[in-house]
Simulated scan of single mutants.
Amino acid sequence: MSNQVLAHLEDLVNALNISLFTNKTYFSQSEIQQQIDILEDIKEYINKSESEFATENITEEALLNDILNNPESLTPFAISYIPADLKDEISLTDTDKFEIEVINLINKAKDKRMSLNNLLVALKLTTGIAYSRSILNNRLYRMVKKDILFSVPGRKGLYTTNRDIQYESNKEESREVDLYNEEIN
């Protein structure tokens, strides 16, 4: 499995390097270089994980730390490393699993923001489930109402896990109004 992942990462790095040197991309050179660096770090981590992190004790210790640091709810990390004999005892609904997947995806995205379109594609790639736009939109709306996900103000169909985005947006709007008022005076 890890050999397949490493081969895929190598292909991605090569493709990014080609687009970097040929300038045949919509992304800036710094964005491409940043992605290459991230992929190289992932490759390095996978290589290390096969030798250094293979013991169960390290996984169990990380799981315990995660649970102790998040005592009210299980994180995506905790859920993925719960021992098999306990998984049947943990009560997770399909909605819980969906919400964890969405939050996990958005947290991995740049600036912890993701559009509805990108979520549709990312969920299909990660879960294999092709949600209809209206169903996904309804589920995201319910997540927003539960305050576990937030709409980016002024940006239709853009979601974030950053609670402070509301305050940042209000500050920006206040600055824009102040600048407008200065121009008028």
Rank of each mutant, 00 (worst) to 15 (best):
95 T>H: 08
93 T>R: 08
62 A>K: 10
84 A>S: 15
67 I>W: 06
71 P>Q: 06
68 L>H: 14
92 L>M: 13
102 V>E: 03
81 Y>T: 02
99 E>N: 14
102 V>K: 01
70 N>G: 11
86 L>M: 11
110 K>M: 10
111 D>H: 09
63 L>N: 02
128 G>F: 10
92 L>E: 05
86 L>P: 00
115 S>Q: 03
125 L>P: 01
116 L>E: 06
128 G>V: 10
99 E>H: 12
103 I>N: 08
85 D>W: 00
98 F>P: 09
103 I>A: 06
70 N>H: 15
104 N>P: 05
121 V>I: 11
128 G>W: 06
62 A>V: 07
85 D>Q: 11
115 S>G: 12
94 D>K: 14
67 I>F: 13
90 I>G: 04
109 A>K: 05
92 L>Y: 07
76 P>Y: 00
104 N>E: 15
115 S>V: 09
97 K>E: 08
78 A>N: 03
105 L>M: 13
128 G>L: 09
113 R>V: 10
75 T>F: 03
128 G>H: 05
67 I>N: 10
99 E>R: 14
100 I>K: 10
125 L>S: 10
117 N>Y: 13
103 I>C: 13
73 S>M: 09
69 N>Y: 12
111 D>P: 05
101 E>S: 15
69 N>L: 13
91 S>L: 14
117 N>W: 06
104 N>S: 15
91 S>H: 14
79 I>Q: 00
116 L>W: 04
84 A>P: 08
118 N>W: 03
103 I>S: 10
125 L>K: 12
103 I>Q: 12
126 T>D: 05
101 E>F: 04
63 L>F: 06
128 G>E: 06
92 L>S: 08
124 K>G: 01
62 A>E: 08
104 N>C: 15
107 N>M: 09
75 T>Y: 03
107 N>I: 09
90 I>T: 04
127 T>N: 00
100 I>A: 09
119 L>K: 01
74 L>V: 04
70 N>R: 07
120 L>Y: 03
118 N>L: 10
73 S>H: 13
96 D>W: 10
115 S>W: 02
87 K>T: 15
72 E>T: 15
79 I>L: 09
97 K>F: 06
72 E>V: 13
122 A>M: 09
75 T>C: 05
128 G>Y: 03
93 T>W: 11
106 I>L: 04
66 D>M: 07
108 K>F: 09
101 E>L: 13
63 L>K: 01
104 N>M: 09
63 L>G: 02
113 R>H: 09
108 K>S: 15
66 D>H: 07
71 P>Y: 02
127 T>I: 02
127 T>L: 01
123 L>E: 05
119 L>I: 07
122 A>N: 08
125 L>Q: 13
90 I>V: 15
127 T>D: 00
103 I>R: 12
83 P>R: 02
98 F>N: 05
81 Y>A: 03
65 N>C: 13
94 D>R: 12
98 F>I: 08
